[in-house]
């Protein structure tokens, strides 16, 4: 049940998505990945990709144009 952080602040699309895909492969089932982003396009495509993979996703707006995406590796 470990928690990992992925700092994608200042990175434009599609880098946050590609990095998230890569990082999720390294995680064990039950782990959580927190992706930090500040590009609104990643706010759309990262959760979309995660939901398509049946992961649990939660988005939190932590500041002006800054978000944290929580992805649970459920399977």
């Amino acid at each position: 049940m470990a928690e990992f952080e992925l700092d994608c602040l200042g990175e434009a699309c599609p880098i946050p998505l590609v990095k998230t895909e890569k990082k999720m492969q390294e995680l064990d089932v039950g782990d959580t990945l927190i992706v930090m982003i500040d590009h609104s396009c990643a706010l759309k495509n990262v959760p979309e990709w995660a939901r398509k993979n049946n992961y649990d996703v939660e988005v939190e707006e932590v500041g002006e144009s800054e978000w944290e995406i929580f992805i649970d590796k459920t399977a």
Binding site: L9, G10, E11, D38, H39, S40, G63, E64, S65, E66
Partner: peptide, 13 residues
């Protein structure tokens, strides 16, 4: 972006 209060100077990596 101002109306959504999402204006930000993004840092250069």
């Amino acid at each position: 972006t101002l109306l959504a209060s999402q204006f930000k100077f993004k840092k250069i990596k």
